[in-house]
Amino acid sequence: MNLATHPVFVSLTPVFLLIGAGYLAGRLSWIRESAVRDLSNLVFLLLIPALLFRTMSAVHVEALDLRPLMAYFPAALAVLAITIAWRGFNRASVVMAMGSVFSNLVMIGITLVELAYGKQALVTLLTVVSVHALTLLTVGSVVLELVVAREARAGGEASPHILQTAWSAFKGALIHPIPLPILSGLAFAQTGWSLPMVVDKPLQLLGSAFGPISLVLVGVTLARTPLQGHWRDALWICAVKNLVMPLAVGLLAWTLGITGLPLTVLVVAAAMPMGANVFLFAQRYNVAQGLTTAAMGLSTGLALFSVSLVMLLMGWLNPL
């Protein structure tokens, strides 16, 4: 098969060209630091909700396959637990472990999966996305608060109750511009109504703008990501995130009898580079901020090769 027409090449090239364009714009300061936050707000508060709501507004609950959730999250939590145990029960260890399992399913994953596998694949991906942050951010928050509580007890200080922490994390992850429009769109679909054209068309246009703007924004962020002094630990995080994570998800999904397009989407989703939300943990708990930023940038850069490899292997092992 001609490389220029190979499905993996055809779907990956636009994604990484747009990231490269954003990187160039960032290096040349065409998009200033002060504008990045505004662009991020535009993507997360307007474009993503429009895309997610419109996509899920035509999906009926009885058509959803929830088995992918039973494959993705137990595998992710197992990798999380093993990496924490490997590095030790401390703040830096938990943040690094979160970086090893938290995928960039939205900014990169949605566009890539749709380009590579079509609209039907988005239903499987968005099923995972709907509870991705809710599950992993809640677990990460609780584990980090347990670490903080242990440190507080060791220093003779009082610490908040673990149930209070869990509830706060759950609410923060649920009332969020990603799971909320997915659940709202799914609820709308169950009414049997269709979106009026005057509503559907603006949502379609906003959703179409999401892909290119979000990928350019990823590139701009990479242009401002320092890697000095963090190569060794960042490479370990990237190895687990980009390679071990998709292997773990793929093996569990195969064990559960998941095949075909859902299996491929799950493995490719797990192979996505590290998501930016991990930096929020590093920032909040004042630990490993430089390492987290470096690992995120390196994971995204290496994804050009690792995601290509995963997609090629899945095309060979699990032909659609």
Rank of each mutant, 00 (worst) to 15 (best):
A282H: 01
G192R: 14
Y117V: 00
K201P: 00
A21Q: 02
A4N: 08
L186G: 05
G219T: 11
M296G: 05
R37W: 01
V59E: 01
G26I: 01
P212Q: 06
T300V: 14
H230M: 12
V79H: 08
L77Q: 04
G185H: 09
L302K: 04
K171T: 05
Q289F: 04
A154M: 09
L39R: 11
V278Y: 10
P226H: 08
A75S: 13
G290V: 07
L80D: 01
A85I: 06
W167M: 09
L206E: 01
V8H: 03
V249K: 00
A223Q: 04
P177Y: 12
L28R: 14
T191M: 12
M274T: 12
E114H: 11
L18K: 07
A4E: 12
G192T: 12
S194W: 02
R150E: 15
I48K: 13
S130D: 03
S57I: 08
L69H: 03
L261V: 13
G290E: 12
L163N: 03
P7F: 02
T255G: 05
F281W: 10
R153N: 07
V240P: 00
T13A: 12
L227F: 13
L144D: 04
V101E: 01
L291F: 05
A158V: 14
V198S: 14
L80R: 00
Q164A: 15
A209R: 04
P196F: 02
M272P: 01
K119P: 03
A269N: 04
I258G: 02
W231V: 14
L112D: 10
I162Y: 10
E114Y: 03
G185I: 08
L298Y: 10
V139R: 00
L51V: 09
V61Q: 07
G301M: 15
L317D: 00
L252D: 06
Q164V: 13
V220P: 07
M56K: 04
P262Y: 12
K171E: 10
M96S: 15
L227D: 05
A71R: 07
T127F: 05
V218H: 04
A63H: 13
L45F: 14
V123C: 03
G301Q: 08
A253T: 02
Y72V: 15
L52N: 10
P68Q: 01
L126C: 07
E33R: 13
A81L: 11
N90F: 07
V142L: 02
A269W: 06
A189L: 09
A169L: 11
A295R: 07
L42W: 07
A223T: 05
A269Y: 03
L291K: 00
Q289E: 11
R232Y: 10
V220Q: 04
P273W: 09
A271F: 11
L317V: 02
A173R: 01
S100C: 00
S141R: 12
W236I: 06
T264I: 13
W254C: 04
T300Q: 10
N90P: 00
L312A: 14
V220A: 10
